[in-house]
Write a protein that binds this DNA or RNA. Structure first.
Lengths: 280, 280
DNA sequence: GTTCCGCATGAATCGATAG
DNA sequence: ACTATCGATTCATGCGGAA
């Protein structure tokens, strides 16, 4: 059997393709799997009550192919059918039983979520990004995702007018002076576990409108350049695009030919664009 | 035994006082219970592995006292001990088994979370507000929590704190002041299921990790004036203050005398303030 | 009176140290 | 080996005093 190539997408079921991935060869698994379907008869969808049985064998493969200091990030959100479905929180418990550490739950706050109004609830504008690891210690490059410091200090530091600036400099030996100077040189702070990215509405109707910024953030956080990122449900190729942009290698898998074709098209366009940029 | 009075706080264990509350007499249970303690020996705290056994008998009483169209809102967040604790999601499953509907999970996005930096995670800046109901249909007054359109104004008005309020009112002649005032009552849209409030620390002694805006939002959403709100873990009395402000009646319970005294003081101060305001 | 700044302080978490 | 305690890390906010 042909070994898997990097920066390529494979057409087929993840559970069939994953066995071809080498042991402990992947640095990050970043994926947004198909969410459970409410209607059991929906073609290709996984019913809520079969979701865990469907997912766990795949997670077993994840555990095999992930390197010891790697991470597995699962973007998912249960739907509501009168009440919230429980398959996601049950999946967390099951993954722990399989040996994963449930290290963190990040919130993706979708600032422009779908409009709509229902009698029981408001618009759902957040999704879970569940972070699992194999070990207590893992690779995390926190500096790569630092963000500009909050408004409060910006306002205060911007207001350092002539008088204050003079004072700050002249009083360099005082604690006050030194402290302010330290803040000025340091415009980046560490983020928290709530992510804010606007979802994008692509032309194709992949149910999960998964903006490139989301995988990109986790890719920067948990891998370095040249590392391997696996997305077994790559959809329209967003994780691949994020890898191309950040100089990581990816392995993609997609079961539906429609998305497989779309992902390949998107990837090729991006690769062409990068080549053109280099020529200039 | 003396019947429970409204707008009063009872000193003692919720499981002992709850039996005195009449069947189906409460319109909303809004509470932030003590979170599980990491250290097992910590005095008064509930260890993680005993949390569900401690909570479920209390939840049974909640079910008895809540009226059929009422709501139960639980503000809670699991801590981390290398990995995230699972007692909260297990509690959700257990409450469902007890007959509750897990109607929704709101996110409280704390804009000012605890600082700190660790090798394996960022600062935790969100908490769960789990919404349970007894029935598919329940009281929800969505219009009462509508917000001005657009993110900037939403953030701004939600965060109208002392300083901004003062400025908004006092600067009525300035453009900014008038502009902000004009937004109120105009172009109102429904919010989503992510709430943004900054935690405030009012007193030197007690950490008000639970800002008044949080219970106030749910009180407005799930009750009308004159309704009964129960908080069996009322702490420093925040839920009671929110009720006084919004003309709801509350029943409070608190096991620790220190908080019981503080809550009574806060409630009395607020009642006195309301009386003074009326005289003017 | 209004704006501005220093300071204290939080539902935190980890790793090391001590018992 | 297992548990309790402690120091280090970090940043948005309200408050009070100063400009």
């Amino acid at each position: 059997m042909e070994p898997l190539r990097f920066n390529n997408i494979y057409l087929g079921d993840a559970k069939d393709i994953l066995p071809r991935v080498e042991d402990e060869s992947v640095d990050l698994i970043m994926t947004s799997p198909p969410y459970a379907e409410k209607r059991k008869k929906s073609y290709g969808g996984i019913p809520e009550n079969e979701y865990i049985d469907w997912f766990m064998p795949i997670a077993r493969e994840f555990k095999r192919v992930l390197q010891p200091k790697g991470s597995f990030v699962l973007n998912i959100k249960e739907g509501a059918n009168v009440q919230r479905e429980t398959y996601v929180i049950e999946l967390i418990l099951e993954l722990k039983r399989q040996g994963w550490l449930w290290t963190e739950e990040y919130i993706w706050y979708k600032t422009a979520s779908m409009p709509g109004k229902w009698p029981n609830r408001f618009r759902d504008s957040w999704e879970r990004c569940l972070h699992f690891t194999k070990n207590k210690k893992f690779n995390m490059y926190q500096d790569s995702v630092r963000v500009p410091i909050g408004d409060w200090s910006k306002t205060r530091l911007n207001n350092l007018k002539s008088y204050d600036k003079k004072r700050t400099i002249s009083a360099s030996k005082s604690g006050l002076g030194r402290k302010v100077m330290n803040w000025k040189g340091r415009d980046l702070v560490y983020p928290d576990n709530v992510l804010k990215f606007a979802p994008v509405c692509k032309n194709m109707r992949h149910s999960a409108a998964y903006p490139k910024e989301l995988p990109l953030w986790f890719i920067k956080l948990f891998t370095k350049k040249g590392d391997i990122v696996l997305d077994p449900f790559i959809g329209s190729g967003t994780t691949g695009l994020a890898c191309l942009e950040s100089n990581r290698n990816f392995i993609g898998m997609e079961i539906k030919r429609k998305y497989f074709n779309l992902a390949n098209k998107n990837i090729q366009l991006e690769q062409q664009r990068l080549i053109n940029d280099e020529k200039k």
